[in-house]
Amino acid sequence: MPADEEEIYQEHILDHYEDPYHRGHCARPSHAHEDDNPLCGDEVRIELDVDPAGQIREAYFSGDGCCISQAAASMIVEHVEGKDVDFIKQFTAEEMLKLFGARLTPNRQKCCLLSWKVLQSAIFSPLVEADDSGNGQSGTRPAGPNLSEET
């Protein structure tokens, strides 16, 4: 077995993978973005409910992929909830790798950093209100293309 810091499948990470924090959708998302790693097929979507002052009221993720990609997404939405947009802007890739905990080879760092990239884009991706009759997720659509239809 690898040394502790190299153990990808350690308790903390498996916890996030198998019992993730906020896997699902915001009731009233104001921002969202999704992306994938075409080479391995990992997909992550992050939805944010940002209040007018720029504070993250709620953060949710959804997606599909390896343990690292999905655990990292769970960790990052937990980490940024309650923080403000400036905090996210200053949250570096290096800090994301540190937050993840296990030391990763460059190839698997991509799995970990997918949700970090998605989050960085999400704060610049406000959702357009489609109509005001709908409730929750069906009433809002991302301004950009919906990649989930491609999978």
Partner: peptide, 12 residues
Amino acid sequence: VHAHDVAQLLDR
């Protein structure tokens, strides 16, 4: 078990 995790665990 995602395919990448399969490969990673087999590699061990």
